[in-house]
Simulated assay, not measured.
Amino acid sequence: MRHADWKDLVMIKLCACAAGVMWGLALPKKLHKAAAFTVTALFTATYLPEIMKFFKVNRL
Rank of each mutant, 00 (worst) to 15 (best):
L27D: 04
R2Q: 04
I12V: 15
V21P: 03
R2W: 05
A36L: 08
A16T: 10
A18K: 01
A36G: 03
K29D: 07
W23M: 10
W23T: 11
P49F: 05
K13G: 12
A26F: 09
N58T: 11
L9E: 04
A34M: 12
C15M: 13
M22R: 15
E50G: 07
L25D: 07
L42C: 05
G24S: 08
R59S: 09
C15L: 15
V10H: 11
A26D: 10
L48V: 12
K33L: 14
V10Y: 11
D8G: 15
I51R: 02
L27A: 10
M22Q: 11
F43E: 11
A16D: 09
G20V: 07
F37P: 00
I51M: 04
A26T: 14
V10Q: 12
A19E: 13
H3I: 01
A19I: 15
A19S: 13
A16L: 15
M52I: 14
H3W: 05
I51A: 03
P49A: 03
T44I: 14
T46M: 02
C17T: 13
L48P: 00
A26P: 03
L60M: 10
V21F: 13
L14E: 08
M52F: 10
L14W: 00
A16C: 10
E50L: 13
Y47Q: 00
E50C: 11
K53R: 14
A36F: 06
R2T: 08
A36C: 05
D8A: 15
W23N: 05
A34F: 06
M11Y: 05
G20L: 09
A45N: 04
T38N: 01
I51G: 00
T44E: 04
A18I: 11
F43G: 09
L9H: 07
A16W: 02
F54N: 02
L42Q: 01
P28T: 04
F55V: 04
Y47W: 00
K29P: 14
K56V: 05
K30N: 14
A35R: 06
